[in-house]
Amino acid sequence: MSDIKKFMFVNRKAPYGTIYALESLEVVLITAAFDQDVSLVFIDDGVYQLKKGQQTKGIETKNFSPTYRALDGYDVEKLYVEKESLEARGLSEEDLLVDVTVLGSKEMGELMDQQDVVLSF
């Protein structure tokens, strides 16, 4: 396919409390299969999606956090986390289960400006 667009997925919601994070991840995997330029950004409570050590047995819900580690295999390598959101939640890069690029708010905004399609769920 010749037309490659820049898709950005903006994740601002925490996992488990609602289904948005899981169903968003399903779209990301499909978009990667279409050979598009995919970026994932995690802002606000979205950063909790990447927290290490999620154990969902007690809430009898599927733990989908290992999927973020599998994204690499789908050539989804652009994962960005907003620095201010991490700090506001007492988290640092070491708390996250994948390698990410940490960006300041305005750097994140510039990246968003450059996209063709911005999707948020």
């Binding site: 037309d3 779209v27 499909i30 978009t31 063709d116 999707l119």
Partner: peptide
């Protein structure tokens, strides 16, 4: 879901 991605590719605005 491919239909969503295709819409993103084909449409001028989403």
């Amino acid at each position: 879901l491919g239909q969503l991605v295709e819409a993103g590719i084909q449409a001028d605005r989403m």
